[in-house]
Nucleic acid binder design. Structure first.
Length: 151
DNA sequence: GCCAACGTTGGC
DNA sequence: GCCAACGTTGGC
């Protein structure tokens, strides 16, 4: 089983919204590297750190898990969506997304500062300079430390 | 709202 | 296939 970190702006979609909805298709990713992780590597049951970006504070807000493997992102075909992609066709979809399911919300958000201050987490991808990838792998040892911090 | 870092696009 | 210009991300 693999572990992941997925970023979402809470103003757009928060851990509370996921708790309410139970599951969601992770639509709107328009970065090939992030897509490839979802399309090729994410399996049902994989655990996900749900990360709030552009937030007060930014950080890991809870845990989700992959509930369905990748399927074509419907928004790429929706002309009214900001995620519409005129180069995508139903025969040859360009963008894929997995479905994730709510697992738990942390008692306390594990802020970016918390992550930075923990030497054991120093080589997490999310802490790398200029790291913008919205779907990224996480080592199990890091996942375990972060979930312990979250309570 | 600024801007550094990074990704994508498109002319050549 | 290079790379300048442009767009986006996301912390601050």
């Amino acid at each position: 089983m693999n572990h992941w970190l997925m970023k979402s702006e809470p103003d757009v979609f928060s851990i509370d919204q996921l708790a309410k909805d139970k599951t969601t298709w992770w639509e709107g990713v328009r970065n090939y590297q992030a897509r490839n992780y979802m399309m090729n590597d994410m399996k049902v049951g994989d655990l996900v750190l749900f990360y709030h970006s552009n937030a007060e504070p930014s950080g890991v807000a809870g845990i989700a898990k992959v509930s369905k493997v990748a399927e074509p992102d419907k928004l790429q075909f929706d002309k009214k969506s900001e995620y519409f992609d005129e180069k995508a066709t139903k025969d040859k979809p360009r963008w894929f997304c997995v479905e994730v399911q709510f697992v738990s919300k942390f008692k306390h958000i594990v802020s970016l500062q918390d992550l930075r201050e923990n030497p054991k987490l120093a080589d997490m991808m999310v802490l790398a300079k200029g790291s913008r990838l919205s779907v990224q792998p996480v080592e199990k040892k890091h996942f375990d430390i972060v979930s312990k911090l979250g309570g």
